[in-house]
Structure formats: C-alpha cells, structure tokens
Design a protein around this nucleic acid. Structure first.
Lengths: 196, 196
DNA sequence: TGTACATCAGTGAACGCGCGTTCACTGATGTAC
DNA sequence: TGTACATCAGTGAACGCGCGTTCACTGATGTAC
C-alpha cells in the first residue's frame, strides 16, 4: 500500500537519531556509519551525501546531545528562583542527563581536538554554540554567588568540577561500579565542605 | 655481535609497557594487540601466549596505570603531615597524573562492566586491588576530616568528585580545550565554597 | 496543465585497511639422567 | 660434564570480520518553459 520511496525525506536527521540510539544501546564502540545507515533503513553508502565523513556525523551527534543536555537542566530549574535551590536543581539536571544518557554524556566530554579539522564547519559551529549554551546554563546559576562587582569564574569552576566529577564517577550505567556501594546523594555532600 | 634471541625474556611486561606508550601517544584508539606486539619487537601472534585476549591486555594496562597513579599521589603527599595540606597535596598528585598521563587517566575510568567476564581472573584481581589502593590513598587523607566517631564517606565523595571533575574538565591534553581560557588553579577554587 | 530536463539522494559493488584469533610449525631453553 | 628430550615462547600464513570511502549508476523530485 505505502509506496516505497526512493528518497528518504530527512536522512540527515534520521542518521543523527540512529547514532544516538546506537550509542545509548552499546556505547561509543557501537557507533559506525554503516550501522547508522542500516538503522535508518538506507544503504551504507547513502550517508556520504549528508556527511563529509564519519567524524562530522559524530560531531553532529555530540551537538545534538548538548541540546538535550541543556534542555534537561532547564527543565529541572524551571520555576525555581531562590538562588541556591536553583543552582542545586541545575546540578540535579546535570546528573539526570548523565544517568539517563550515560554513553552520550561520556562521549560529549571526550577530547576531539585532533579530529576537529575534519568536522564540517557549520557542524563544528553548531557544536560549539550548543556546548557554550550548556555552560551558560550553569554559569548563570552561579552568577548569584559571585563577589559583588567581581567574577563568578571561581564559583563556576568549583561547581562544574564537583558536579561533573560526581556524574563521571557515580552516574555510570548501573551505579553499581563504585567499590563501596551507593554513594551519598549529591545534595547531601555539599555541606561536607564545612569540614575542610 | 648480539645474537638474536628467539625468546623475548619478559614479553608480558613488554606488552604492557608498549600498550601504555601507544595510548599516551595516540589515545585509546591507538591501542591494539598487533601494534603492541610490533612495538615489543615480536610477531603479532606472540601475545596470545601471554594474554587470553585483547581485553585482558587492556585490563593489565589499567592495573598498571593505577599503580602509577597511586605512586604519583604518594610522592606528592610525602613529608606533609598537616591534614589539610596533605589532602591538597594528594589532590595535586591526582591532577598531576591526569595531566601527565591523560590518555591513561581517561581510559582507567571508562566503564568496563560488560567486558569484565573476559578478563583473566588474576589480572582482574590485580586491577581491583590497585584501584582500591588508589582510592585508599584519598580516603586516608579524608579521614582526618570525618566527624568524631563517624564515617568519612561524605567527605571522600565530595573531595573525589571535585578533584576528578576538575581533572576531567581541565587536565586534558593541552589544557586549551576549555572555552574560557585557563581555569583557576585547583587550590584557589576551594575557598569558593564559602559563597554557596 | 503538460512536457523536457537538471538535480541529486539513493543503490550496490568494490576497494583496501587493520583488527583479533587460530593453526601447524620450529627452535631455544632448561631439566632429567 | 655430556646427552636426550619435554616444554613452550616464538613465527608466519591464513581466516573472517566490520569498517570508511569511492564509483558508476538510476530513478524520483521538482523546476523551467
């Protein structure tokens, strides 16, 4: 009944979605142009018309991931105006993303400097813009804690390091990889700073 | 003059060293059994007599890396007894390792649960022991800050997350990947906690 | 509205590559006597 | 000290695999007239 279309319609989009699904199912190793093409229901040579190489597809996937990342943080902070609660909510969003999209999360933060030259420029631009937008989300929540008339850079670095480390160490696939059982919740460890 | 030896002597060791050098030179992607064998000056089939598969070699490399990691932290804390200075020194060691062996550092903390079954049991045991020893180094330095008669688990989690996140975010190959230039030094961001 | 045609997103075959692993083998090592 | 021999760490060829990429092609799409 449904006539077989020769043209896919939006293969560019479909390849990104397929790539994300592949990574979430099998980690970064599971990603390949051929598997993305297969999952999008297209021959393995088709992607070449949309991406100038596998590196650009990877970059597009990372860019997309940053978009989801930012949206997750925004969803968590929505409606919260008290500065400290808002900052913690954003961190919870950060951690939620790292849990729910663990493979993407790890992939996003892998260094790619040596491959950057192979990325299609508009894709690289989008990647950088979305990455900056994610950082902004956190930075804006930190602004409330800056010294009057001063920079919040130190606070940003502190909070980002803390939440990122917590995510990397404890938000992996099962949460069972840590040697000592379930770690304390993120919000619970913050007061520990008074001891140091 | 030097007679060509058929037997290598300690190929097991040489393969691990070769693997570490390969990873440090070209990242995790650059590691393969064949390249390790070539670098050790041996045919590509030789490693099969020492490792029951590439996964075990990788695990042995990670185990070795944890050893270097622990030694680096110990070297930094040596001779320092004041608790806070000692804890910071260990963090500096943590960061030094992450800078000087960035590829190893990232590789060590990659999830491998799905491959664990393929690791030769004694190698897996060694890996777990060395990983625990590294954690102990940090945990012992945290003990001084535990509530009297209480657990230091919260402090450990806080400090580990913070230093690990900082390492992951800012200690990558060049240090130039961060979007906003050089971040504040680790020791400088600690006091920022008072603002939160 | 109908027709000619340029465009271009698909196909399927083919390429060369590096990989892990297996296999029969060989020859150095080191032990038993 | 000398000899026979078992062991086993190496070799080199071969396997099948999945990969990215190129190529000539084809046929659907959509525009110009």
């Amino acid at each position: 009944m449904t006539k077989q279309k020769r043209h896919h319609g939006d293969l560019y989009e479909a390849l990104i979605v397929a790539g994300i699904e592949l990574m979430e199912a099998g980690g970064p190793e599971a990603l390949s142009l051929r598997k993305c093409a297969a999952r999008a229901g297209v021959s393995h040579a088709a992607p070449a018309h949309h991406f100038n190489g596998v590196v650009s597809l990877k970059a597009a996937i990372v860019a997309r991931s940053y978009g989801i990342f930012t949206k997750t943080m925004q969803a968590h902070r929505e409606g919260i105006s008290e500065p400290r609660a808002r900052l913690i909510a954003i961190c919870e969003g950060y951690l939620a993303f790292s849990r729910e999209h663990n493979a993407l999360f790890r992939f996003m933060f892998q260094p790619f400097a040596d491959e950057a030259a192979q990325i299609n420029p508009p894709i690289l631009q989008e990647l950088e813009a979305r990455s900056a937008a994610a950082y902004d989300e956190l930075a804006q929540a930190c602004a409330a804690f800056a010294p009057v008339g001063g920079q919040a850079r130190g606070t940003e670095t502190l909070v980002w390091s803390l939440v990122h480390g917590y995510a990397m160490l404890f938000a992996s696939r099962e949460g069972s990889e840590t040697p000592h059982g379930r770690p304390p919740d993120f919000a619970q460890i913050l007061p520990e700073f008074q001891r140091l």
